[in-house]
Computed example of a mutant assay.
Amino acid sequence: MDKKDRQILRELQRDGRLTNAELAERVNLSPSPCLRRVRNLEKAGVIDRYVAIVDREAAGYPVTAFVQVTLARHDREVVDTFERRVRDTPEILSCHLLTGSSDYLLQIVVPGLDAYEDFMRKTLHTTPGIATINTSFVYGTIKETVELP
Rank of each mutant, 00 (worst) to 15 (best):
I130F: 12
D88C: 06
Y116C: 03
G45S: 06
V63T: 04
A24I: 03
L29A: 02
T70K: 15
C34E: 01
L23N: 02
A52S: 14
D55Y: 08
E117V: 11
H96F: 10
L98T: 11
A115L: 02
G100R: 06
G45W: 02
Y116K: 03
V79C: 12
L12S: 05
R39V: 01
S102K: 05
R85S: 15
L105I: 07
V109E: 01
Q68K: 11
N20G: 09
L97R: 12
G60M: 08
G100F: 04
R39E: 00
Y116R: 04
L29V: 06
G129T: 09
G60L: 08
L41H: 00
S94N: 12
A59I: 06
L97K: 11
R121S: 13
R121F: 12
D48W: 05
G16H: 03
A59K: 11
V67Y: 05
R56V: 02
R87K: 14
I92D: 03
R37Y: 00
T19H: 09
L113Y: 08
A65I: 01
V86S: 08
Q68W: 12
P128K: 15
Y104V: 07
M120V: 15
V67L: 11
P128G: 15
R76F: 11
L113N: 02
V67H: 07
A115P: 03
